[in-house]
Design a protein around this nucleic acid. Sequence first.
RNA 1: ACCGCAGGUCGCCUUAUCGCCUCGAGCUUGUUUCGAGGAGGAAAGUCCGGACACCAUAGGGAAGCAUAGCGGCUAACGGCCGUCGGUCCCGAAUUCGUUUCGGGAUUAGGACAAGUGCAACAGAAAGGAUGUACAGGUAAUGCUGUAGUGAAAUCAUGUAAACUCUAUGCGGUGAAAUGCCACGUAAACCUGCGCUCGAGGGUUCCCGCCCGAGCAGGAGGGUAGGCAGAUGGAGCGUUUCGGCAACGGAACGCCUAGAUAAAUGAUAGGGCCCCGAUGUUAAAAAUCGGUGGACAGAAUCCGGCUUAUAGACCUGCUUUUUUU
RNA 2: GGGUCAUUAACUCAGUUGGUUCAGAGUGUCACGUCGACAACGUGGAAGUCACUGGUUCGAAUCCAGUAUGACCCA
Length: 147
Amino acid sequence: MKGKSPQRFLKLLRFFFLYIYTVSQKFPKKEKLKSSKTIENLFLEGNTHSKFPLKIFFLPEDNIQTNLAAFAVPKRNFKSAVDRHRVKRQLREAYRCNKQLLEEIHGKKFVMLFLYLGKVKPQYSELEKAMVKLLKKIKDEMSHDKD
RNA sequence: ACCGCAGGUCGCCUUAUCGCCUCGAGCUUGUUUCGAGGAGGAAAGUCCGGACACCAUAGGGAAGCAUAGCGGCUAACGGCCGUCGGUCCCGAAUUCGUUUCGGGAUUAGGACAAGUGCAACAGAAAGGAUGUACAGGUAAUGCUGUAGUGAAAUCAUGUAAACUCUAUGCGGUGAAAUGCCACGUAAACCUGCGCUCGAGGGUUCCCGCCCGAGCAGGAGGGUAGGCAGAUGGAGCGUUUCGGCAACGGAACGCCUAGAUAAAUGAUAGGGCCCCGAUGUUAAAAAUCGGUGGACAGAAUCCGGCUUAUAGACCUGCUUUUUUU
RNA sequence: GGGUCAUUAACUCAGUUGGUUCAGAGUGUCACGUCGACAACGUGGAAGUCACUGGUUCGAAUCCAGUAUGACCCA
């Protein structure tokens, strides 16, 4: 009984934090980039940034409701489908946890594609670092343009 | 008890937080709340066989492909089971020439007495051609035997995973099939062939049958969304009966992924197992360390085959050691 | 999801259909010659389990089956 109460307190605290900071950490179907036409357009006209082991293609788009994101891992670097899939999932997770960085720029929406360039399976923490760095870079650039 | 072989089963567990997909329910009808479910034995390779769909409710012949002792199982099969023969290994008996019996492994195993091809080297001679040595025999002769060469030597020579023949089976395409809905454009332009004297199509060719006004190429324009197909099935489990077995029948119970730029995850902790080190006479316990926990991710669905696979468990057989 | 091919010396390829005489060419490489020296040229040599594993056969780079790797095609 005595041991339970601090644990409960911590739980509540965590809930509080999550509620305040991450308004929406969800990543439903609607936020996935699916149309092959827009992807082709993205490759043709989009800008790129890279921070090893990630590379991002992005393009501002007007007539969409939310940011759209897609993830890719080349078959050349990972032969096993299981490994490819796993890296993709980790990328998706990293984006999901950090996508609120982009939502602070109001008015502009993006289409983007993350490409994994490494040849070995990554640690999640490295991926997350790279992801944060890239998103911040875009944010800075875009808010600069606005001014 | 240990080692090896064969067959079979399983193939990490659990807690918290944050997510993903499907289905059901609730209402405040929304980027919501609650509940239930969410990868494999190979999902893999795509090597076979089906179901299903469309093309004539699929015809005749040719070509092509596949299979190959015999019998059975099956929706079907190139699969599986049984059995005969061949080859190899082990053991026992034996007249020690080998043969017989038992056990195991393996086997694409029809036909060269229809025709054609090929048969290196060696050898006299490799299929219509000849003849060495020795012995025997004859009226006479490679007429006969042995030796010698070779995988094979006159014996219907060997070879069909050589062409081929025989028997059997196979129409084609493949969920990117097919049907419906929505959106959009160009029913336009150029060249060739054709419109009942028939282009073209029915996915190799010919015949037959059917369809019948477009077809082929060029440049260019539009779209590349949704729903059905599509997840209840040759389904799974238990018991029992028939059968040597593969498998089949009956009864009872169960519902078990359905994505589509493609869900089934991420992070942190605990346990279990494995490896290494410390420890100990030896073992055990304990402690510390490990990007340690195989192979691998459904894509219309089933039945096989093949290949990859850390570790754990079960059954049978063999060998060695100890005890009785 | 479905289909078609390839793999021979360090590199680029013949040979494979039709089996034994069979592993060969060019480039590169090594040695020698030529030259005062180098290039070029000439002569000679080395280098391969014919991708791997089985099977058929007297005999397999070649025939058959499986595996691995690579390439290409189909809306």
